[in-house]
Design a binder for these strands. Structure first.
Lengths: 208, 208
DNA sequence: TTTTGTCTAGACGGATCGGTCAAAATCCAT
DNA sequence: ATGGATTTTGACCGATCCGTCTAGACAAAA
């Protein structure tokens, strides 16, 4: 018993440290991948950015690909949760979709680097990983498209193919990673509201 | 005279062939860069894709960077011309901006690969090239923002910061390179019209 | 046929980078 | 301090890839 307790305490410390360093490395890698692109970043870059050497990174991760995959997987988890949570509010399709768009825009602006990686580095994944990512994206978009369809059925939305309407909304929001500046004059909430507003009612003062 | 004529005839054939092969190489490179990313494509890939060897490519181009730069420069030229041409029509801001958005969407859908490269590979350019590209993008966007501002002044558009409104429109259109399928059920014109419509009047049937 | 300019092949250099490995250092319970 | 587990180091291997270079193929002019 005592032995077991001791070794497990020791293993505990070890695993906590491992978790911490893994997190550090993922953060460093996220910055660099977003800034220069996966292919242009070396393991040495990721390591020396933290004052480590390459070997340290390879102690905590099996390969460069595993680092990328960890980042990509987590991005999706975070995005999905916040969108799914909105469905509990039992809103009408037009209100719900506006809220979902708003939240997606906020997702992008909260971690622009994630969106950059998620969308730019898909080709760097291995075939089966890539299939998974594509499915994630499809499922995520489908959440929005279903609401759009429901809204069309109720006469709330114009009869535009859901795929086109949602594709437009996604582009609008995802593009934020290109130009959104956290230190800019507008807050993320303001921008998200503007976007939800434009998509719902357009930017013209009267209907065209 | 005869000598001069002869040698120039020979040079003529040569330069025509050079122009042709250079074009071939740029096309091959464009496909591959868009598909796999600049960094992941080797000169050998570009060459063997055409049945050539690496040396041929280096006979026609100084470096890999020159190929990328040629592609990027041309993209902008093509985009800009078609947008500037619309200004001659002397439309009111709301009509003009709708036409410009429509045209930009068509630009993207005509050569999705160009948009992909133009936006994904900016980090692969050399510093001064990158500065030029950023200026191109700023100037391009400014064309749209000016029209938006004029529309706001006339009470035609809602008072949204032009940068935000146009950023959204650009994202919407540029994102087409991710999902637009030329063989899909909708034509490029239909999609472009839908987008211009959404941005002008929203996707809701009544103003929210 | 010889010569000249244009184009191509293939080998090579040099640098980079992902990943491995054995040895050393560090840490902690006994 | 000792012993065992964990962590770090730095050298190293092998592969890839950009770009160069030399020799020669090929066509057209002389």
């Amino acid at each position: 018993m005592r032995q077991k307790k001791n070794t497990s305490a020791r293993a505990d410390i070890a695993s906590r440290k491992q978790a911490f360093v893994r997190e550090e490395i993922l953060t460093s890698a996220t910055h660099l991948f977003a800034e220069r692109g996966y292919r242009a970043v070396t393991i040495d870059d990721i390591a020396s950015n933290l004052g480590y050497t390459k070997s340290v990174v390879y102690y905590y991760f099996k390969s460069k690909n595993e680092i990328l995959w960890q980042i990509v997987s987590r991005i999706f988890e975070g995005y999905l949760q916040k969108i799914v949570a909105l469905r509990d509010d039992q809103l009408a399709p037009d209100q719900l979709l506006a809220a979902m768009v708003r939240q997606h825009a906020l997702n992008v602006m909260e971690y622009p680097e994630w969106t950059s990686i998620f969308n730019r580095e898909e080709t760097e994944l291995e075939p089966n990983q890539r299939r998974q990512v594509r499915k994630m994206k499809r499922d995520y978009d489908a959440l929005f498209e279903q609401v759009y369809e429901a809204g069309v059925a109720k006469g709330l939305f114009r009869k535009i193919p859901p795929h086109v309407a949602i594709g437009g909304a996604m582009g609008m929001c995802n593009w934020l990673y290109v130009w959104y500046n956290p230190k800019g004059p507008l807050s993320a909430e303001e921008i998200a509201d503007h976007y939800a507003g434009i998509l719902s009612g357009g930017w013209c003062t009267r209907a065209s």
